[in-house]
């Protein structure tokens, strides 16, 4: 991957811009090339062409395909229009975009979210239950096995149980101004609505999702990590818009993350019978707007989750 300091990048872009823009045209904004640019990541996962032509290679390819078009390849477990690659760019390869290789080598791991050691497959179950607003595939299901195989293969050569540069989304310090709905709305209109639509519902064509829904029925539910304003701000800052990493100011990223998560979305599947109880147990943080009043409405006050949970899910802690 192309790794360089932000200072180097701006020097390069400055030079390129000066050389290539026609004098009669206004200069167009440039940006860092990708999320990896600010992470210091040095690891490169193997190239896709090198997936072995073996039965195991076929499982790896299936995992890759699930990442790229989750509703198609893991339909039984998906309750919305999102795909893994929407939040793990380049099919989970990109540093600074929660790459699978960095996660894989750090599991099993303790998670405060369910207060226990989680295996990698259990971690993947959480993705389906919350981010995909679906149901958790049973442990050992071919979908989980394929995603695990793909992650294992991506991590070829990485030491296990060591923090690795590029994991998760790059940390984004709090800004001096508290995140704000109106400022976030302005950022959304200028920088997000072209793709995700004025109403946040995303855009599809011929039955294929092109730009995912950011809120509403087609998006992640209230239990997803992306519903936490800090996660969302970090993801957006490093990865959005496509090809324009780190082009928003940190303040813009915090504000637009707040705005996005200040909208209604599917109920938290850990619902405890009331929005107050669910907030107290799972959302007791300034970083979640669940149960808070926005524009005169209490977010998450939509009653019990619409999907029924299966027996398979019952033994999986949230």
């Amino acid at each position: 991957m192309n790794i360089a300091s932000p200072a180097t990048w701006s020097a390069i872009f400055g030079l390129i811009s000066a050389l290539s823009i026609a004098p009669t045209q206004a200069a167009v904004e440039t940006s860092a090339p990708n999320a990896a640019a600010n992470t210091g990541a040095t690891f490169e996962p193997p190239k896709e062409d090198d997936i072995p032509n073996t039965p195991f290679g076929n499982t790896i390819r299936m995992g890759r395909d699930i990442m790229l078009d989750t509703p198609k390849h893991a339909a039984r477990f998906v309750g919305n229009n999102l795909s893994c690659t929407n939040c793990h760019l380049d099919a989970g390869r990109m540093a600074g975009s929660a790459p699978l290789w960095a996660a894989y080598v750090n599991y099993p791991a303790y998670r405060a979210k369910n207060d226990k050691i989680n295996t990698y497959q259990q971690r993947l179950q959480g993705c389906f239950r919350f981010s995909m607003n679906g149901s958790a595939p049973p442990l050992g299901d071919p979908v989980l096995v394929a995603l695990e195989a793909y992650s294992f293969w991506l991590a070829t050569g990485l030491p296990v149980n060591k923090e690795v540069a590029g994991r998760g989304y790059p940390k984004l310090d709090k800004t001096t101004q508290t995140p704000d709905y109106a400022r976030g709305q302005a950022v959304y209109t200028a920088r997000c609505a072209l793709c995700h639509g004025a109403n946040g519902a995303g855009q599809s064509v011929s039955g294929r999702v092109v730009f995912p829904a950011l809120w509403g029925d087609g998006s992640y539910n209230w239990g997803a990590g992306m519903g936490s304003i800090d996660n969302a701000a970090q993801f957006i800052h490093a990865n959005m818009p496509y090809g324009m990493s780190y082009s928003l100011t940190p303040q813009d990223a915090w504000d637009v993350a707040y705005f996005m998560n200040a909208h209604e979305r599917p109920q938290d599947p850990r619902w405890l019978g009331s929005v107050e109880a669910t907030r107290t147990k799972f959302h007791d943080s300034t970083l979640s707007l669940y149960g808070q009043t926005i524009n005169g409405k209490i977010l998450g006050n939509t009653g019990a989750p619409k999907q029924t949970q299966t027996k398979d899910q019952a033994h999986i802690a949230p």
Binding site: P33, N34, D90, M94, V205, V210, S245
Partner: peptide, 27 residues
Amino acid sequence: ERGDWSAGIPACFNCHAPGGIGIQPSF
């Protein structure tokens, strides 16, 4: 279909829709 993300190039189809059929009017 996939772009060259390491060089900062998203896939054409990421915005111009799968199959490159476009999303009117901007793509």
